[in-house]
């Protein structure tokens, strides 16, 4: 009788141990749970206390275009920011202009004053990536022990733009409006293309309705 109890207890213990030894979790859940860094709070503080105050130092877009054509090297060194090495540089830019079209993924604007009347695009759909985080040059990758935390900061900053900056602008903007913009611009130093300029917005204001 005692033996049966012993075996029963043994089997129950074995079942409990075996059940707890094997479990299934989604791969991305494993990764998400390993990080304790609060990217959302960090992004909010960075956006309010570092990024927005930096906009006063942004270079005027048409001036940047002119400088890039006259002295590319010096202009990249002076106004471009990147956290590492390579061809990609981010610029903090600002400007004013008239809306010439409203499209599915962007709004085209002729930035004034521009004698060439060249059209630039302001992204209203694809606000992603590190452009906004890195353009001010005020964030240090070495503060982060894990690159994924650092990238989560970008994701959270972009969410702020998509949730708070884009909807009120998209709701009211019409062709012919005068707008004021500040944002980030990504340029490739080795394969520079100034014909198709896309500004990732940080601040958008309609200053005069049509």
């Amino acid at each position: 009788m005692k033996k049966i109890v012993k075996y029963a207890v043994g089997i129950i213990v074995l079942i409990i141990v075996a059940y707890n030894l094997v479990y299934f979790r989604k791969l991305d859940e494993v990764k998400a749970s390993s990080s304790k860094f609060d990217a959302k709070t960090y992004a909010r503080n960075y956006f309010n206390n570092k990024l927005l105050p930096s906009l006063s130092n942004a270079v005027e877009l048409n001036q940047l275009m002119f400088l890039l054509q006259t002295n590319k090297e010096q202009t990249f060194d002076k106004y471009g920011h990147a956290l590492g090495i390579g061809n990609i540089r981010y610029f903090l830019v600002k400007g004013e202009g008239e809306v010439t079209s409203i499209n599915e993924n962007d709004v085209t604007v002729v930035a004034k004053p521009d004698t060439n009347q060249k059209t630039i695009r302001i992204a209203t759909e694809f606000v992603f990536g590190n452009a906004i985080r890195d353009a001010s040059g005020r964030i240090d990758i070495n503060e982060f022990s894990n690159t994924m935390d650092f990238n989560n900061v970008s994701a959270e900053i972009n969410k702020i733009i998509r949730a708070e900056v884009l909807p009120p602008f998209k709701k009211t903007v019409v062709k012919g409006d005068s707008v004021q913009f500040a944002g980030a611009l990504e340029l490739n130093k080795e394969h520079l293309d100034v014909e198709d300029i896309e500004v990732i917005p940080i601040q958008l204001k309609i200053i005069e309705k049509k």
Binding site: A82, L83, G84, I85, G86, N87, I88, I141, N142, F144, T147, N188, H191
Partner: peptide, 8 residues
């Protein structure tokens, strides 16, 4: 400590 290299 970290030196990122841009991807294109």
């Amino acid at each position: 400590k970290k030196m990122p290299v841009a991807v294109e």
